[in-house]
Design a protein around this nucleic acid. Structure first.
Lengths: 207, 207, 207, 207
DNA sequence: CATGAATGAGTTTTCATTCAT
DNA sequence: TATGAATGAAAACTCATTCAT
């Protein structure tokens, strides 16, 4: 993992290339989100990034590949952010809460990623599965263990199964994320209320 | 409401026109959903409908207008479907459950409408508010009364407020609808589990 | 030439038809002039005239034929107007002056005819000779006799020939007519000055 | 005026671009004149010039802009040609005669420019003033001084004013130019006769 | 590596004309 | 005769991609 103090020629080049790619992706993601995939010309990405159009093709085979790199990078960052937040907590419920909070905050801070998810589906639904759901699937497996533990130690209603819970919370945060984006709602404000209902339901159990 | 046996010229024409429009919208909605707005040429809509390209322009000023008519019709049908389902029940909780079930089933039976919502956002986000949220807002107001009743009669946890609940359930079904669509999940199967957690939460209250 | 008091069926119809044609031409001429041939749709002519699009095709085989009828009618009216003015005068020079004045005034009162001449050339120059020049040629022959008389009676410089004069005056009024139209000049004001130079030249013969 | 042996990058590019534009304009002017603006597709201009359609749009924003460039270039060349001819003469009357001759010869050698003037008016009369009259106005001011001199030194009939003369000659050459073009008349042949009548009138002053 | 001029396939929209009623 | 719904050819313009420099 550690970079040699004096990078050899063979290493330096790919590093540079990766950095350049990275930088282009950041520029492109913003532009794709703002203008939409169709209205965002390679020309404008190049101009915004301060390079020539042809240069983009040195780093990405096509417009679609550039776009996919944007979505991919976004999902990778989402995952890292959520993961990091969860790792800051020890207790299972706290990890879960932290993860959900981080998820909602991530999209609030990166609204372009919400748009990118929509654009991806709109333009490439006949060609590929939504990247989001690929990541969601991976994530699901990691969290399954946590929930299984909570079920086993009796923290969760015994009549619920883990898949049901994973689906529920997955759909809930997914829908909340979109709504927050479209309606300009703040994640921080909603977060507590959401978790409260998720944990305890809406019904008055006293009755 | 009854049509005269011999319709006058002034009535017959608009009727025909409206029917034709309607029929074109149905064809177009399916094609827009399958091919995506960008890849769905007016030519192909016309061909699919068995008319000439120019004919479409007798009924819709532009491709965008045709598309918007598709989204609008879908949202109108959604609303009617959900409304009808709710009206079949008397008890508040039953009305709510029926509405949610009808909502999820509607999109399962009309997967093209899910795609249309995505396409609309992807292509026209700088030009208009998502039609879905316009309808959601209207719907929200109708349901507020129901929930307020439930809060007042003590059926709902007294520490929850109606807006919080409306947001929660709105986001939940929105997210569930998309997930079902993308992952091919069946609404009927999920529905019970979702309502259960929504009403009672996930935590074991025995503890 | 006289119309029977009770027109027979065979005569009435063509008359009506001719009247209708006439009326359509008047409407069309104005619209062609204002919007230009290309931007003036048959639809708009029909609407402006208060008939259906298809009706126009009962009177004119095509858009081009309708247009040509407009130009033709205009040129015919020009000729009649000029002729009538000339016939009101007895002396040759007076006839000439009156004709020229009538010509310039005709186009001032019928600016649409100026536009029509331009449109005709612009759209149909590869298909036909300008109608204006057809009429000009006819007219030329009629006026040749007048000028020949003036040459023979010594009213005209003996070193000039009739063709030279006919060309000169023809070009002069043609150019003046266009300029008046484009620059909004009034024919009445210019007329005297033009004739003066035409008759006497610009040079000071005293010197 | 001399080009550096080794042109710098900053100079070379705009030069090339200007040259290319120039060349395209020449090709386009001819085609617009022959086929007419409406019937002259960008495709055919490109083909005729040996480039692809898209290339034209690198140099001109639209078909209209290309067309206007053609008219503009023509009028600029006309002005230069006439100016140059006038500058070759010293005496005022000779300058005037030379200018008029050059004007008529220019359009005889560039018949496409006559067509372009017509096309411009036919297609863009609601959008812009005819370019010809813009140039005519400029020219008029330059010639006013010459005519004023002639009036003051008594070469011109004292009862004429300069504007009247400028209008007359302007209209005369304008009309003559069109007639020559439409009827295939030769400028060289007509020129002497025109000037003769312009200077001395048609009437026999002996009488 | 970087550039940016050149390419040309592809799509929306218009509108003259037809023809069944 | 009159209508106006239907047709489909035609053309401007865009922009992803290539490649010579």
């Amino acid at each position: 993992m550690s970079t040699p103090a004096i990078p050899t020629a063979s290493e330096k080049t790919p590093d540079r290339k990766a950095e350049r790619r990275q930088a282009i992706v950041t520029t492109a993601a913003r532009l794709f989100a703002v203008k939409g995939y169709a209205n965002c010309e390679m020309e404008s990405v190049a101009a915004e990034h301060g390079v020539a159009k042809g240069t983009l093709y040195l780093y990405f085979k096509s417009k679609q590949e550039l776009f996919c790199a944007c979505v991919d990078q976004g999902m990778r960052e989402l995952q890292e952010t959520v993961q990091a937040a969860a790792e800051g907590e020890a207790a299972p419920f706290d990890r879960i809460s932290a993860a959900i909070r981080a998820y909602l905050l991530f999209f609030e801070r990166h609204p372009e990623q919400v748009e990118l998810l929509i654009q991806e589906r709109a333009f490439f639904h006949d060609r590929q599965a939504p990247t989001y759901f690929t990541y969601r699937e991976q994530s699901r497996e990691r969290w399954r263990a946590v929930w299984t533990g909570l079920v086993e130690d009796g923290s969760i209603r015994p009549d619920l199964n883990v898949d049901q819970i994973l689906d529920f919370i997955g759909n809930l945060v997914y829908g909340t994320m979109f709504t927050n984006h479209f309606l300009g709602r703040s994640a921080e404000e909603q977060y507590e209320g959401i978790m409260d209902i998720f944990y305890r339901g809406i019904r008055n159990s006293q009755t």
